[in-house]
Design a protein around this nucleic acid. Structure first.
Length: 510
RNA sequence: GGUCCGUUCGUCUAGCCAGGUCAGGACGCCAGGUUUUCAUCCUGGUAACACGGGUUCGAAUCCCGUACGGACUACCA
């Protein structure tokens, strides 16, 4: 397998935003290509013009760009097998469908959609299922049931038609799936799938087989929903005389509650994004949230996604894209579907957040500060971020965790006041203010040493002093090491906050 | 309904192919510790082989069946 040229593809249809299941499929293809020094290409499968959604293709490109997944060939990149968009390749498919017609593996069918649905209804009322197959096709309107002359006449009169695959009547198709192993299916349960639609474009089945062959795809790695049509595809390769690629069908991503595959609706219902990027439906204007907009780092998003259905076989959990590519094998992809776990996704983001430099995080935090009307200097933000990043999962939580570094408290947490502002607190804090005002080197270490010495000397309770002190500085029972806080806000601000707190809370009657 | 695929802690999973481990890790949750607060952090704990047969000295692991779940069943991909 390593000898041949590994070429894989991701082939979405531009019918809307790509959801995370699709991103994961693309990711596994990408990792597989990288691991095997192969090529990864992007092809757009837009053979159904009725489902075309404006902006979807751009969305797909932007999503992968954000994720850091790069293509070697295809849409947005070009390459030796261009065009990579199926709607621009209809002439190519035509040749192959002609070949199939010639060899007798395909035939013209003139049944209208209305006729077909009427027959289906009829069957249904008799509690039977209609399949367009060997036992039924002779009763229907097609080039197999009609005489040569009748067929020719219909064709000449431009009667609308589709071209169907002539499914062998009773043949066992043996397939191999890299993830599931050997799979067998008898053709008698299959139907004569439409290969070419009346609009002159191929269906997915024909187009993907032809393109994968022409584009020299070595491994088709796609979602499990395609497994049922694998026999058709295998038969198509054989009928066309193409060499078959290897197949790997990935398990599905399931919704976190209940069962079923994750769908576009689930995200906003459950409160987490299903899409990498935010998406606004061009028709309805409905907005669906995205991981990027929710504050996830692309590295965390990818890491989390990679581990949903694959594992390295050891206990590592944190991987860069390159490390993933290094470790990835299809053998270690699981067989069963995975439920998405929003909590673990947050944990991943936290891991990446704390790994990032304070400078990088400060840069990300700056716009928030600006929006809050805070004027400050970058080095202070860097220091603040260093103290609070451990406590956050997202940059978006920074403000809540650090507002008191930039603004004096306007109110004091009522519960904390009740618990921490005692009869003697006023005098003690007034005394502390005097102590602190006498300190010239206002570092965390220095203020801490002096303050603690004072507490000890006066035999005050450490908890009583520190909690009251925190209340006046922060306004609430939260935040990092208090002496770190006052070192950052500075001596003057510290004294002002003490003064203001003293005035606001006043002396409590005992 | 039919066809195919799947099933280990609440969740993601290791172990299964080459039967023998107290069934391991992570997220979450709970408890304890550290701490001036909250959070972090550290330590510990919680919790699973869907069920029933068979093969075997021995089965999560191999075989069969059942149940449950999912995908597919369009002139959609």
């Amino acid at each position: 397998m390593n000898q041949e040229n590994i070429r894989v593809r991701f082939a979405p249809s531009p019918t809307g935003p790509l959801h995370i299941g699709g991103v994961r499929t693309a990711l596994y293809n990408y990792l597989f290509a990288k691991k095997n020094k192969g090529k990864f290409l992007l092809r757009i499968e837009d053979t159904d013009q009725t489902r075309f959604v404006p902006g979807a293709e751009e969305y797909i490109l932007e999503a992968f760009k954000w994720c850091g997944i790069e293509f070697d060939e295809g849409i947005g990149k070009g390459g030796p097998f261009a065009p990579y968009k199926q709607s621009e390749r209809s002439e190519i498919y035509k040749q192959f469908v002609d070949q199939l017609l010639e060899s007798g593996d395909a035939y013209f069918a003139f049944d209208t959609p209305e006729e077909l649905s009427a027959i289906r209804k009829q069957f249904e009322s008799e509690k039977k299922t209609f399949t367009y197959n060997a036992t039924e096709r002779n009763k229907l309107k097609n080039s197999l049931s009609l005489s040569k002359a009748e067929t020719a006449e219909l064709l000449e009169n431009n009667a609308p038609y589709v071209i169907r695959f002539k499914m062998p009547e009773n043949k066992v198709v043996v397939m191999n799936d890299l993830i599931r192993g050997r799979v067998e299916v008898n053709t008698r349960v299959l139907d004569d799938k439409v290969l070419f639609k009346s609009d002159g474009l191929p269906t997915y089945h024909l187009a993907n087989v032809v393109d994968d062959h022409l584009m020299e795809i070595s491994h088709v790695i796609r979602g499990e929903e395609w497994l049922p049509s694998l026999p058709l595809h295998v038969l198509l390769y054989e009928a066309l005389g193409f060499e078959k690629p290897e197949f790997a069908h990935l398990p599905l991503l399931l919704k976190p509650d209940g069962n079923g595959k994750l769908s576009k609706r689930d995200g906003d219902r459950l409160g987490f994004p299903v899409f990498p990027l935010e998406w606004t439906d061009p028709k309805t204007g409905a907005v669906s949230s995205g991981y990027r907009e929710d504050g996830y780092f692309p590295e965390a998003f990818i890491n989390m996604l990679a581990l949903l259905g694959w594992n390295p076989g050891d206990e590592r959990e944190l991987f860069t894209l390159d490390e993933l590519a290094e470790s990835f094998t299809l053998e270690r992809v699981g067989k069963s579907g995975s439920k998405f776990d929003a909590e673990k996704a947050k944990w991943f983001n936290h891991q990446y957040l704390i790994q990032k430099s304070n400078e990088e995080l400060a840069t990300l935090f700056l716009p928030v500060l600006e929006q809050e009307g805070v004027e400050t200097d970058f080095s202070k933000v860097v220091q603040v971020v260093g103290l609070i990043k451990e406590r956050a999962h997202f940059v978006s939580e920074f403000w809540e965790q650090s507002a008191f570094f930039f603004k004096a408290p306007e109110t004091y947490d009522a519960k904390a006041v009740k618990k921490r502002w005692k009869a003697q607190s006023y005098d003690q804090m007034a005394e502390l203010k005097e102590i602190l005002s006498g300190i010239d080197v206002f570092t965390s270490e220095n203020t801490e040493t002096i303050t603690k010495a004072w507490i000890e000397k006066k035999e005050y309770g450490m908890g009583a002093i520190m909690n009251a002190f925190r209340l006046l500085i922060v306004g609430a029972p939260k935040g990092p090491h208090l002496f770190d806080i006052i070192a950052i806000i500075g001596k003057q601000e510290t004294l002002e906050r003490l003064e203001r707190g003293l005035n606001k809370l006043g002396k409590k009657e005992s």
